[in-house]
Structure formats: structure tokens, C-alpha cells
Design a protein around this nucleic acid. Structure first.
Lengths: 327, 327
DNA sequence: AAGCTGCGTGCACATACGTGCAAGGGGAGA
DNA sequence: TCTCCCCTTGCACGTATGTGCACGCAGCTT
């Protein structure tokens, strides 16, 4: 293996050099790992690990190009009807919702690199979908990139949702980006507290970043679809709140801000206590990437589309089909 | 597997669809081939083949990004000294020249996609290096791309060099490009024949294309390095020609046009009978990609660099090292 | 209509690959 | 300087993957 320069204690560059060389030999020259091990004077298993590292760290990028003449029919139809660029993730119909979420999140994590670049501000929501994605991010080197939290968060819970800090840290690590956290809960109890907080200078810096986002990344909430609803079980909302949402005809939320089936969100009282960006602010971001899995979220997805919140959609096949068939 | 529409006899799109789906499942979702076979209702071995097809046909693209902060030292040094972008192909020092050529050609074929795009005119030389590359091209869909032969050619020979027509056809197929062939031998016997031929309208069309090339792709000849020289053994040149070349201080050729160590090519009589483009014409192409393997070609490479024929160099590690050390 | 030919399929085998485990080595801290 | 800890390595095993072969199904020829 490549030796580090004498006195160079950092082992990282040496490892990266080896990983690059191994990747060339494996992916460009089709050598077997055995042969590569021989060339680099190490064992085959080390090469196997080195190549895993090369893939996981983004040194090796594997991308799939559909021939432009046959984009999936679903993607085509979604583009025509909703003016949204869709990535349809193939998932067998019999897969469970958990599988579905995982597989969509895995694909989404690998697609995400296409949207992220240097000198960008990227807003990230907090929720189970983003958590699942965070586990599979492929690093990509960027400069001067900022990551900003879109909405407040709560605690760890049984479904394995992370602290927002951990979540954002993972995104930040993956892109070498600076992270701007938000220290607030998902919902304030009192709208007045929110207004007060929003006047704080530290908060204003965050809001300012949000208003200048280049990319927003979020999942969808669907308060009434799942029984029992996971995300809303955390004690942030009370029975009375649910009843209010129900009366208001709410079908979903993006980063704690609720909307109706027609995309409207005016007069929904709970939004006064939400911590996510107003849709007018969100819509300033030129790319708004939404990750959705499961037919249960279709009503919520329809609402978000009606509200014009989405420019790019990553969705499982079943949901995509349901979306198209609904017309 | 995906069925074709009733009445659709063409099986290609169905296969491509399946290949895309399999590729998503394999490369984006990390399923095993077994699992994919199950999802697509076929056998595991079919999936293995389908994925091979997906890679070979460019549906799946695997690329390697060096972190920009550590490009290989060799590439760095070559850039600084010769103002040429180098791709150094790792090859063990003990590899034979044949291995070396094969491995460089394989890598080069996979890198080539970066240079080729729609609406371009691409010039391709004829020789053993190009032949080796042609066996490994990864298809890439382009529109309105033209391929033009740079120099005349001879027949099949023992080393496995192809007819120029077959060679160009492979490049044309890979990029969906129109191919413009040249019906001439490598060298004319009489300079007058050449001049006459060059006045023909069909030839002028070809020369016109050459003068508008966006990319030129070629190997290097080195008439005196190899013993016995393969490329020059075909009976195109006679003993007297070699002696003349030797007297003129020739170190190599690009597409049948010879040059000296200092890059000059004036007064080399044989060039009057050559079929390749004059260097002034060649240098009009903004990208001039040269593929070289083996230390034996170093003198030739130095000459080509001195002549300013190269903008991008794909070279094996040993030769790259020799190039840098020569300074 | 029968035969031929070429392609795609699944099977079975050989090979290549991923990973838990125990051992070794090098640095940080005492 | 010694010790502890963590990271890395190679081995061995089980699993995943590639491929020669024989078969069967079109579509085309005679």
C-alpha cells in the first residue's frame, strides 16, 4: 500500500490514494480484487474494503442514465400533469411501508448529489424521511455550502428519528458544509412565543438563510393517513389540535406548516405556532425536492403539488402510479 | 420480465426497460441479483447478464472523481510542464507492452465519453491503439455527431489491426454518429497522386470535416523504437523510406505525419505522401486527445508535445513517470 | 410444412466477493 | 516509558456473481 511521507501522520490521503488506484483498476480496467491486491501488496479483503470505502465516500460514482427517448411513462406523465420532475423508485407492490421508505430514502440519498453543489444554501426539514436518508448519504466535496434547518424538532423517539442536530450534522459532513441549526421545538405552544423568538437576532439570521435557499429538501407529513400517526404522536400536538386540523380540512404538512387539499393554507390556526418557513418563503427556493413513499401520503402529496411547493419529486413506484391514476 | 406491447415485435425497448429497472435495484438500492430476479420474475443469471448489458451499453455509468485537492502528482506535473491534461492509467511496472496497451486502451475507451458530445465532429486516426480502444467503447447517445477518419489505412494484419472501416464503424455505433471514411492507403507512392486525390471533391468534403474537428483522437507512431516495428511492417514504407526518416531525425508520427524531437516537421519528404492532416489543420481542433502506452514511445511523445499536437493525454503510469523524469 | 438458425433462458459449477473474528501495530495519555 | 485503546489487517467461511452448456422458442428459408 502507499506509504505516507515520513513524518506525515495523517493516514487519510494515503488511504484515498490507494482507494483511487484500486477503483481505477477495478472499475476502469476490470481487474479482479485478487489481482489488485497483488499489485498493491495487500490482501484481497483489504481491497474489498477499500472499494467499499471508495464507493461510500463518493470517490466512485455510479449513475444511471435513461436513454432520453424512453423516460419512464410515470415520470413523463407526472411532468406533464404537475410540472414536476419525478424520479420514480422501483419498489415491488408487496413491500411493506417500512421497506418502501427505506428503499426510497436510499435511492434519494444517492440521487441527492445531483442537486447539491458549491456556494449553495440548502434547507433541510426534520422528520422520518430525512432521517432515513441521512443514513445513506454519499459524500460530495463542496465549498462554501450552508445547510439550514427548516423546522424545529423534538426528541428521539421509538421510530428512530434522530435529534435534529445529529441529522443535520450528517448532511453537513457529507457535503463538507457549515450547518445552521434551529433550537426550537416542532411547534410552539403559544403563537406569541413564536413571534418573540422570531424577533431574536439569532433567529433572524436563520430566517434570512431560509429566505435565500437554493435547494429545499423535505418529506411530507400526513396527519390523518397513518393509524396511529407516528410523527404526530410525539406529544407536540394535542387532541384538540387534531380536531382543529380536521375541521380545517388539512391533508398534510411540509416542515410543520399545514395545507389543505387545494393547496391553500390560509386561516389554519396551528400554522401560527409552526416553526417551518411560510410557503411564500419556501417557494423562493428554485429547487424544492420532495421525497415521498407510500400510497398513504397521496392526499398529502396532491395538496403539496397544488400548493406549488415541489419542483422535484422522488417517489416510490406505487405512489407514483396512484398519483397518476387519480386523474 | 416486461412484456412488449402486443404487436410490438421490437424487443429492444423492453430489454432496456428491464435493464434500467434492474440497474436501479442493484446500484441504487443494493438488492442482490437474486432479489431482483424475484422481482422481475426471471432467473438470477438473466439478471447478471442484464446488468452486464446495462453497463456495457452505457445505461449505467461508473465514474471516478479524484478529490480536487489531490490529483495524482504525475498529472499535476505533466500539466505544469506541458500544459496538457493527463489521465494516468495505473499499470504495474512488470506488465508486458501488450498488457499495457490493452489496459490503457480499456481505460481510455471508458474515459472517452467525457470528450464526446452532440453536434461535434470527431477525428479518429487509424492504428493499433485505436483498434484496441474500439473493442471497449461504452456507447453514449449523441445527436448530429460526425466521425471522420484522419488517415488512410491498409489491411488486416497479424497483430489484429482492423480494417479502418470496421474501426470507424465501432466508434460510429457507440455514439450513434455518422461516419465519414477515407478510401486511401496509409501512404501514397507518389506525392503527385496525393495532390491529385486531394483535389477530388469527395476528398475535399473529408478534408473540410477534418478542418472543423472538435475532437481529434489518435495514438502515436514511433518508427524506430520497436524492434521490429509492427505498424511500419505492413509494407507501406520501404527500407529507403526508413533511411530517409532516420536521416531527417524523425522520432514519431501522428496519423502518418512525421515529426522530429523538437516538434518540427518541415522538410520531411515522406510527409508529402502522407494521408493524415497537416499539423496546422490538426491543431485547429480544440481538443486533441492522445493515447499512449509504453516507455518505448517516450521520444515520440516528447516530439508530439513539442509540436503542440496534444491537449489531453491518456498514458500509462510508467510512461508518465518517464516523461516527468526526463526533465 | 419441415428444417434451420440465432437468440434468450435456466441450470450447475467455478470463481469472486463480503464479513465476523482474532491478532498485530501505532499513538495518546498516564 | 509503559499501557491501553482503537484502528487496521489477513484468514476463513458462507454467500453472491459470472459463464459454459443444453434446451426451447421464434422467425426465416427451402
Amino acid at each position: 500500500m502507499t506509504e505516507n511521507e515520513p513524518g506525515e501522520t495523517e493516514t487519510v490521503p494515503g488511504k484515498t490514494r490507494d482507494a483511487l488506484r484500486a477503483a481505477h483498476l477495478y472499475y476502469m480496467q476490470d481487474l479482479t480484487m485478487d489481482a489488485i491486491a497483488h499489485e498493491l501488496h495487500t490482501s484481497r479483503s483489504s481491497i474489498s474494503r477499500l472499494l467499499s470505502h471508495a464507493r461510500a465516500s463518493g470517490l466512485v460514482e455510479i449513475s444511471i442514465h435513461s436513454p432520453l427517448d424512453l423516460p419512464s411513462r410515470l415520470e413523463q406523465e407526472i411532468l406533464e400533469r404537475h410540472e414536476v420532475h419525478a424520479h420514480v423508485v422501483p419498489v415491488p407492490d408487496h413491500a411493506s411501508d417500512v421497506d418502501r421508505l427505506d428503499r426510497v430514502a436510499l435511492s434519494a440519498a444517492r440521487i441527492l448529489g445531483q442537486y447539491v453543489d458549491s456556494n449553495q444554501t440548502i434547507g433541510i426539514a426534520w422528520g422520518s424521511t430525512m432521517t432515513a436518508m441521512s443514513r445513506h448519504l454519499v459524500p460530495k466535496a463542496t465549498h462554501n455550502t450552508e445547510i439550514v434547518q427548516l423546522n424545529g424538532a423534538g426528541n428521539v423517539r421509538s421510530t428512530g428519528i434522530l435529534y435534529a442536530s445529529e441529522l443535520l450534522r450528517r448532511f453537513g459532513d457529507a457535503f463538507g458544509a457549515h450547518v445552521q441549526q434551529s433550537p426550537v421545538p416542532a411547534f410552539f405552544d403559544d403563537p406569541e412565543t413564536r413571534r418573540a423568538f422570531w424577533r431574536e437576532r439569532s433567529t433572524r439570521r436563520l430566517l434570512d438563510l431560509q429566505s435565500r435557499m437554493d435547494v429545499a429538501l423535505f418529506g411530507l407529513g400526513s396527519p390523518f393517513a397513518e393509524v396511529p400517526s407516528h410523527v404526530y404522536q410525539g406529544g407536540y400536538l394535542e387532541r384538540a389540535d387534531y380536531e382543529a386540523l380536521s375541521r380545517d380540512g388539512v391533508v398534510g404538512d411540509v416542515a410543520t406548516v399545514f395545507y389543505r387539499a387545494d393547496g391553500s393554507s390560509d386561516g389554519i390556526a396551528l400554522n401560527e405556532r409552526a416553526t417551518g418557513p411560510d410557503f411564500a418563503v419556501l417557494r423562493r427556493a428554485p429547487r424544492r425536492v420532495c421525497v415521498v413513499s407510500g400510497r398513504a401520503k397521496i392526499p398529502s402529496l396532491h395538496g403539496a403539488l397544488a400548493a406549488g411547493l415541489i419542483t422535484d419529486l422522488i417517489v416510490d413506484e406505487g405512489a407514483a402510479r396512484a398519483l397518476v391514476e387519480a386523474a
